[in-house]
């Protein structure tokens, strides 16, 4: 918070703004927590073939969407009524963008959950047993970047962004395995394709966690995160 001394009116406005920033950050954290839980439960539903749990993930996504609307409304209201400047403005803009990104992450988790009933697990596809490990990598990225957001820790954010490479590698590995498997067992192509999409969704979750990391960095430092060495783009 920028704090100027003297005028009581300014102080009053600043305190109100401070309250709103705290509320905004609370909403983002709640939204992030719900997205994290959605990923965990979707993968849990996948490995246990639990369509009931999968359905609850799909239903709970509405709450994430509502939170996005609430964050957008509050952020726009703050920007129009309080005209924040410098780091306050950055924080508000970052919150707005992070909300959009987390909403996408929630959608990917929902998409994974939607595919659960399509997978019987009767045919022994190796990828099915590897997906939870990949989900853990992507989920940990989201978890750690939300921690970085809570602590306004740009170094932790950079460290999360670095880990996206591992998720991409994982995706490429699963992609190849599934491709070979489908060529050898054409009967399983339907199921294997769903697994491929799930892997892709997890890979996108990793990318979006990186986007959040960039916003945390931007809000804390006022400049964009330096370009990092990247692996080959996942297809």
């Amino acid at each position: 918070m920028t704090i100027s001394k003297g005028v009581t009116v300014t102080e009053h406005i600043l305190r109100a703004f401070d309250e709103e920033i705290v509320e905004l950050r609370g909403l983002i954290s709640e939204m992030g927590g719900r997205a994290e839980s959605a990923i965990d439960r979707a993968i849990d539903a996948l490995s246990r073939r639990d369509s009931g749990l999968a359905a609850s993930v799909v239903a709970d996504d509405k709450r994430i969407d509502e939170l996005e609307v609430a964050i957008e409304r509050l952020a726009v209201q703050m920007m129009t009524l309080r005209a924040p400047m410098a780091d306050d403005l950055r924080e508000t803009v970052a919150a707005l963008k992070i909300a959009g990104v987390i909403e996408r992450i929630g959608d990917y988790a929902k998409n994974i959950a939607k595919r659960v009933p399509q997978i019987s697990g009767s045919s022994k596809i190796e990828a099915l047993s590897v997906l939870p490990a990949m989900a853990q990598l992507a989920g940990d990225m989201l978890h750690d970047v939300l921690d970085a957001f809570a602590a306004r820790d740009w170094e932790a954010a950079m460290e999360v962004a670095d880990r996206d490479r591992a998720v991409d590698d994982f995706y490429n590995s699963i992609f190849r395995t599934l491709l070979t498997f489908m060529m050898e067992n054409p009967a399983t192509i339907g199921e294997a394709t769903h697994l491929l999409f799930i892997a892709k969704n997890l890979e996108r979750i990793g990318d979006h966690a990186t986007n959040v990391a960039e916003m945390v960095y931007f809000a804390a430092r006022g400049e964009y995160m330096p370009e990092r060495e990247r692996g080959h783009d996942a297809l």
């Binding site: 509320e23 950050r25 609370g26 909403l27 709640e30």
Partner: peptide, 21 residues
């Protein structure tokens, strides 16, 4: 556990878990 920064923040910043919220 949560980091000293959570004092003064919304409780959801400390505990994000939906059940807790």
């Amino acid at each position: 556990l949560f980091g000293a920064h959570v004092v003064g923040e919304d409780v959801r910043v400390a505990i994000r878990h939906p059940a807790a919220t």
